[in-house]
Design a protein around this nucleic acid. Structure first.
Length: 402
RNA sequence: GCAGGGGUGCCCGAGCGGUCAAAGGGAGCAGACUGUAAAUCUGCCGGCGAAUGCCUACGGGGGUUCAAAUCCUCCCCCCUGCACCA
């Protein structure tokens, strides 16, 4: 690929780019570039939001560039203030090591970890003298640090900002000096930190890294950015059926974003897709199914994605039972005359957390036994081996009597 | 340390002596519809009970009252302003 073609590919869908010219220049050097990506060791559960920059790394890697993964074991002790309104809790060293390991494992789903250079930033920071550390701090001003939104808002609202936190971007920036990064990429929330890296590199007499960022992926709720704590995330290690189902549950409006950021489709490709939907050539449901399938396939396999799609159609479109049913084990002693109270059965199956909840489900017509709606909460129902209990649209269980 | 403002159900947030299991929103769940676990609409949404009902719950303890989320008191925690120390 020519440098120009690479430029087009790498910068596709990115929001922050400092600078295009510099990137092209570096690509023209004809040597593998060193692409830095910083991993936050506090979040070992990677989701599709994290996958956006990681997929970019994959592209760089495939074209022969060197991915440099920085595990921020040292910086993890500080806690990144990005996008936070509160000071983050610090992690212990043990926690960080465990997290880092899990991290590498998950990243392996997308990248060839063996070809990555994995570095822990304690490597250069742990032995660093206090004076060297202070020297780094001498390269940045308070005024510039306060330009950052997180900080200026917190300052305005009287929320404390520790000096430690202001040091974070500098430390992260120094990582770029240590690994001689050509390019650093990340989510758009990292833009400030990455730009500081450029300044720090300059201060140490190096050619500043090129900075590229991508938009933060919106979660399944359609409003907030994807995050584990908001519960609107799709983990990259989730089962194919779960992943597929969650993807089918995203609001339609999110589809273009997901096509862009998760499948790296270009603007024109997505526009064409949207046009097809509008003209009725492509059913929106089909567009979403294609999306879900492609994404699931990238983490599992074509066949797994195919199966997940079929399973989904079976259960939700055709309203049939899933191919595998959860087991509801009943002891013969729990039955009298072969019957059991319906409330008790729902509870026993684990489909309700309390009797009240079970009653509610029954009253609302959400409970079926052998395809028959049971709406009387007082009912005693006859159960036999293999009978199927359904609660809502997605929960199924098959009775076994022991 | 002083002064002021707060701590309410999964989350946000109203209530400020009885009619409060506590408005409203969000999340969640169910039903209808559908193109899906989209959107929309409807309903539910502390526990136990067949039920009148009982129990638990408004930061924690104690108290006043026939009656407290609501009043008093002590304690803990958070925020704001001021002061103090370096």
């Amino acid at each position: 690929m020519t440098p120009e073609e690479q430029l087009e590919l790498f910068t596709r869908n990115c929001v922050g780019l400092e600078t295009r010219e510099e990137l092209l220049e570096k690509l023209r050097l004809g040597r593998p570039l060193r692409i830095k990506y910083g991993a936050d060791p506090s979040a070992p559960d990677l989701h599709l939001g994290h996958s956006v920059p990681i997929r970019k790394l994959q592209q760089f890697q495939e074209l022969g560039h060197q991915v440099v993964f920085i595990i921020g074991d040292f910086t993890g002790l500080i806690g990144d203030p990005s996008g936070r309104s509160k000071t983050r809790p610090m992690l212990t060293e043990d926690e960080i090591m465990v997290n880092a390991e899990t991290y590498a494992q998950q990243v392996g789903k997308l990248l060839d970890v063996g070809k990555c250079e994995i570095r822990y930033n304690s490597e250069w920071f742990a032995p660093m003298s206090a004076s060297a550390m202070l020297e780094i701090a001498g390269h940045y001003t308070v005024a510039r640090m306060l330009e950052r939104d997180d900080f200026s808002l917190r300052l305005r609202d009287g929320i404390p900002i520790t000096i430690l936190e202001t040091l974070y971007p500098l430390i992260q920036g120094y990582d770029s000096v240590a690994v001689e990064a050509d390019v650093e990429i990340g989510g758009n929330d990292q833009l400030f930190n990455l730009l500081v890296g450029r300044d720090i590199m300059r201060a140490y007499g190096m050619t500043p890294q090129v900075v590229m960022t991508w938009p933060l992926l919106v979660g399944t709720d359609g409003t907030e950015k994807m995050s584990k704590s908001l519960g609107n995330y799709i983990g990259i290690t989730e089962l194919p059926t779960e992943m597929y189902g969650k993807l089918m549950s995203i609001p339609d409006e999110l589809m273009p974003d997901y096509y862009h950021l998760l499948l790296d489709k270009s603007r024109t490709e997505v526009k064409a897709l949207q046009a097809d939907i509008e003209t009725g050539k492509l059913h929106p449901r089909q567009a979403k199914a294609n999306l879900a399938r492609a994404i699931v396939a990238s983490y599992h396999s074509e066949t797994a994605a195919q199966e997940a799609a079929e399973e989904f159609d079976r259960v939700f479109t055709q309203r049939e039972k899933p191919s595998e049913l959860q087991e509801i084990a009943l002891a013969a002693g729990e039955l009298s005359g072969g019957t059991i109270g319906i409330v008790e059965l729902v509870l026993k199956a684990g489909f309700a957390r309390s009797k009240g909840e079970a009653r509610r489900l029954i009253r609302q017509g959400g409970v079926k036994l052998q395809d028959q709606v049971v709406s009387d909460e007082m009912a005693r129902v006859a159960v036999s081996e293999g009978a199927v209990l359904q609660v809502g649209k997605r929960r199924f269980g098959q009775i076994t009597i022991t």
